[in-house]
């Protein structure tokens, strides 16, 4: 957007969607904020009353809250780590000429097309189940006691499941970026005496930086609100060991019927998401402009 003209044209073009988005967001947000200041329990209809910041105080001092924050961040960072590193690795592999490339690529994309609930159930019952699961079978076949993933390492299990779902997306984006790397640059580096590793660090990785940023951004947005996978596997447990913020808000509203408290939790989640978004945007601004 080089000139003043194109910039204002761009603004005019964006205006309708911005207005729509605002309306879409402002109404629910206003209602949530309003509810968060009420004592509003579904078990006691008609008894709503203004309680000021009480809901926030209860929510923030709930020990489950800190656990949830930690879990939320752990899921985001853990999954990002796996998907970005794994995605780069897979993309590099898929970029190699090989037999059956088309089919292999489709297979790699497949997990992304499976619904989160289904994927999580498949993992829960077919892989991680300590009695019938594949992992338990493998462990037993080498003489080890089976490991009950969902009870003994609930957070790690959820991170694994979610990472499995999001890995294809990261791989796909990184693969297309990889394919746009100029062949002559690689050849020039080869003639300049750069080995495979140097070519990767000096050429491929900088070239991928934008794609990696995009992957991180998109993933973070979705990973902050992981829900289905938790609901169908661990239900937030044992205790609150795998409860993230989204799940905590859900539990507050629909298990404890405390709409006021849940609204306060929702607002806190929004604030946290904005803090994360702020840092993300700064990071993105830097890479995308460069």
């Amino acid at each position: 957007m080089a000139t003043l003209h194109t910039r204002s044209a761009a603004r005019a073009m964006m205006a309708p969607s911005v207005v729509l988005l605002l309306a879409w967001m402002v109404v629910p947000l206003a209602m949530t904020i309003y509810f968060s200041f009420l004592r509003y329990n579904l078990l006691m209809p008609g008894m709503e009353e203004w309680v000021g910041f009480d809901n926030y105080r209860y929510f923030l001092t709930d020990p489950a809250f800190f656990q949830a924050i930690f879990n939320t961040l752990a899921i985001v960072l853990g999954v990002l780590l796996i998907t970005v590193l794994g995605g780069i690795g897979l993309a590099l592999l898929l970029d190699q000429p090989m037999f059956g490339q088309g089919i292999v690529r489709i297979l790699v994309i497949a997990p992304f097309l499976i619904m989160p609930t289904v994927a999580a159930l498949v993992w829960k019952n077919m892989f991680m189940n300590p009695v019938n699961g594949l992992f338990a079978y493998l462990a037993r076949s080498v003489g080890l006691p089976p490991f009950d993933f969902l009870n003994n390492a609930p957070l790690l299990s959820i991170i694994l499941i979610v990472a499995w779902q999001w890995l294809p997306f990261a791989t796909l984006i990184l693969l297309t970026a990889l394919q746009s790397l100029d062949e002559e640059q690689k050849e020039a580096a080869q003639m300049d005496g750069a080995g495979a590793w140097s070519r990767f660090t000096y050429l491929t990785l900088p070239h991928l930086s934008r794609a990696i940023t995009v992957v991180i951004l998109i993933h973070t947005i979705f990973l902050l609100s992981v829900f289905a996978e938790i609901l169908v596997t661990t239900n937030g447990g044992p205790g609150t060991q795998s409860t993230n913020l989204t799940f905590l808000v859900y539990a507050q509203a629909l298990l404890q019927f405390d709409v006021g408290g849940a609204s306060a939790g929702g607002i806190i989640a929004v604030i946290l998401a904005n803090i994360v978004a702020f840092f993300l945007m700064r990071m993105i601004g830097k890479t995308l402009e460069a």
């Binding site: 100029d182 002559e184 640059q185 050849e187 020039a188 580096a189 080869q190 003639m191 300049d192 005496g193 750069a194 000096y202 050429l203 900088p206 070239h207 930086s209 460069a290």
Partner: peptide, 29 residues
């Protein structure tokens, strides 16, 4: 291998490394 032949090549598309400064480009080999 190409690097072992002690030849330098200048490509039609220049094939400069886009994210490196001119200095780093020249210094790369």
């Amino acid at each position: 291998a190409p690097a072992k032949r002690r030849l330098s090549m200048v490509f039609q598309s220049y094939a400069l490394y886009p994210h490196m400064s001119v200095r780093s480009n020249i210094a790369f080999p």
